[in-house]
Protein backbone atom coordinates (compact mmCIF):
# COMPACT_ATOMS: atom_id res chain seq x y z
CA UNK A 1 0.00 0.00 0.00
CA UNK A 2 2.70 2.52 0.98
CA UNK A 3 4.41 2.67 -2.45
CA UNK A 4 1.09 3.72 -3.94
CA UNK A 5 0.43 6.27 -1.21
CA UNK A 6 3.86 7.74 -1.96
CA UNK A 7 2.82 7.93 -5.64
CA UNK A 8 -0.32 9.74 -4.47
CA UNK A 9 1.91 12.23 -2.66
CA UNK A 10 3.99 12.73 -5.82
CA UNK A 11 0.73 13.44 -7.68
CA UNK A 12 -0.18 16.08 -5.10
CA UNK A 13 3.32 17.56 -5.34
CA UNK A 14 3.02 17.84 -9.14
CA UNK A 15 -0.19 19.84 -8.68
CA UNK A 16 1.57 22.29 -6.35
CA UNK A 17 5.06 22.35 -7.89
CA UNK A 18 4.40 24.81 -10.77
CA UNK A 19 3.43 27.48 -8.21
CA UNK A 20 5.95 26.53 -5.51
CA UNK A 21 8.90 26.30 -7.93
CA UNK A 22 7.41 29.02 -10.13
CA UNK A 23 7.81 27.51 -13.57
CA UNK A 24 5.81 28.24 -16.72
CA UNK A 25 4.32 26.37 -19.63
CA UNK A 26 4.59 23.80 -21.10
CA UNK A 27 5.88 22.08 -17.94
CA UNK A 28 3.27 23.92 -15.87
CA UNK A 29 0.26 22.61 -17.77
CA UNK A 30 1.78 19.15 -18.14
CA UNK A 31 2.23 18.81 -14.37
CA UNK A 32 -1.21 20.30 -13.69
CA UNK A 33 -2.69 17.50 -15.81
CA UNK A 34 -0.44 14.59 -14.79
CA UNK A 35 -0.64 15.47 -11.06
CA UNK A 36 -4.38 14.89 -10.56
CA UNK A 37 -4.35 11.81 -12.82
CA UNK A 38 -1.46 10.29 -10.88
CA UNK A 39 -3.11 11.17 -7.58
CA UNK A 40 -6.35 9.45 -8.65
CA UNK A 41 -4.87 6.25 -10.05
CA UNK A 42 -2.29 5.88 -7.26
CA UNK A 43 -4.90 6.45 -4.57
CA UNK A 44 -7.16 3.83 -6.18
CA UNK A 45 -4.24 1.41 -6.68
CA UNK A 46 -3.54 1.64 -2.94
CA UNK A 47 -6.64 -0.52 -2.40
CA UNK A 48 -6.08 -4.23 -2.92
CA UNK A 49 -8.96 -4.97 -5.29
CA UNK A 50 -7.82 -2.24 -7.70
CA UNK A 51 -4.07 -2.72 -7.24
CA UNK A 52 -3.71 -3.41 -10.99
CA UNK A 53 -4.17 0.30 -11.69
CA UNK A 54 -0.54 0.75 -10.60
CA UNK A 55 0.32 0.04 -14.24
CA UNK A 56 -1.46 3.27 -15.21
CA UNK A 57 0.85 4.97 -12.69
CA UNK A 58 3.77 3.29 -14.42
CA UNK A 59 2.67 4.80 -17.76
CA UNK A 60 2.33 8.23 -16.15
CA UNK A 61 5.79 7.83 -14.61
CA UNK A 62 7.29 6.99 -17.99
CA UNK A 63 5.51 10.01 -19.46
CA UNK A 64 7.08 12.24 -16.76
CA UNK A 65 10.50 10.92 -17.83
CA UNK A 66 9.99 11.69 -21.53
CA UNK A 67 7.77 14.81 -21.31
CA UNK A 68 10.74 17.22 -20.94
CA UNK A 69 12.19 15.78 -24.16
CA UNK A 70 8.87 15.96 -25.98
CA UNK A 71 8.11 19.55 -24.96
CA UNK A 72 11.73 20.68 -24.62
CA UNK A 73 11.96 22.18 -21.14
CA UNK A 74 15.01 22.54 -18.94
CA UNK A 75 16.16 23.57 -15.49
CA UNK A 76 13.99 23.05 -12.43
CA UNK A 77 10.91 21.63 -14.20
CA UNK A 78 13.15 19.12 -16.01
CA UNK A 79 14.78 17.95 -12.77
CA UNK A 80 11.41 17.85 -11.04
CA UNK A 81 9.83 15.84 -13.86
CA UNK A 82 12.70 13.33 -13.98
CA UNK A 83 12.81 12.91 -10.20
CA UNK A 84 9.05 12.44 -9.94
CA UNK A 85 8.97 10.17 -12.99
CA UNK A 86 11.75 7.95 -11.66
CA UNK A 87 10.07 7.77 -8.28
CA UNK A 88 6.71 6.84 -9.80
CA UNK A 89 8.22 4.19 -12.10
CA UNK A 90 10.07 2.51 -9.22
CA UNK A 91 7.16 2.75 -6.75
CA UNK A 92 4.51 1.57 -9.21
CA UNK A 93 6.56 -1.55 -9.97
CA UNK A 94 6.26 -2.59 -6.31
CA UNK A 95 3.03 -4.56 -6.08
CA UNK A 96 2.93 -4.68 -2.29
CA UNK A 97 1.32 -7.46 -0.26
CA UNK A 98 -2.15 -8.73 -1.16
CA UNK A 99 -3.58 -9.97 2.13
CA UNK A 100 -7.16 -10.66 1.00
CA UNK A 101 -8.65 -13.21 -1.38
CA UNK A 102 -10.84 -11.74 -4.11
CA UNK A 103 -12.23 -14.83 -5.86
CA UNK A 104 -9.62 -14.62 -8.61
CA UNK A 105 -9.91 -10.85 -8.97
CA UNK A 106 -10.78 -9.07 -12.22
CA UNK A 107 -9.19 -11.74 -14.46
CA UNK A 108 -11.83 -14.19 -13.18
CA UNK A 109 -14.36 -12.24 -15.27
CA UNK A 110 -12.77 -13.18 -18.60
CA UNK A 111 -10.62 -16.19 -17.75
CA UNK A 112 -12.46 -19.44 -18.52
CA UNK A 113 -11.51 -22.41 -16.39
CA UNK A 114 -10.91 -25.66 -18.35
CA UNK A 115 -13.70 -27.41 -16.46
CA UNK A 116 -16.15 -24.68 -17.28
CA UNK A 117 -15.17 -24.51 -20.93
CA UNK A 118 -16.41 -28.03 -21.56
Amino acid sequence: MWPHLLCTAIGAWLMAAPDLLDYRDPARTNDHIVGPLLFTFACTAAFQSTRGLRFVDLMLGIWLLIAPLVFGYWGEPLINSLACGLGVVVLSLIRGPITVQLGGGWPALWRTEPAERA
Binding site: T40, A46, F47, S49, T50, L109
Partner: peptide
Protein backbone atom coordinates in the same frame (compact mmCIF):
# COMPACT_ATOMS: atom_id res chain seq x y z
CA UNK B 1 -11.27 9.80 -5.58
CA UNK B 2 -10.94 8.13 -2.18
CA UNK B 3 -14.33 6.40 -2.65
CA UNK B 4 -13.36 4.63 -5.90
CA UNK B 5 -10.98 1.97 -4.50
CA UNK B 6 -13.13 0.77 -1.59
CA UNK B 7 -16.28 0.65 -3.76
CA UNK B 8 -14.83 -1.43 -6.57
CA UNK B 9 -14.33 -4.66 -4.61
CA UNK B 10 -18.08 -5.00 -4.19
CA UNK B 11 -18.61 -4.34 -7.90
CA UNK B 12 -16.05 -7.07 -8.62
CA UNK B 13 -17.92 -9.54 -6.38
CA UNK B 14 -21.21 -8.80 -8.17
CA UNK B 15 -19.67 -9.10 -11.64
CA UNK B 16 -18.05 -12.40 -10.63
Amino acid sequence: VVMIGPAMDEVLASLQ
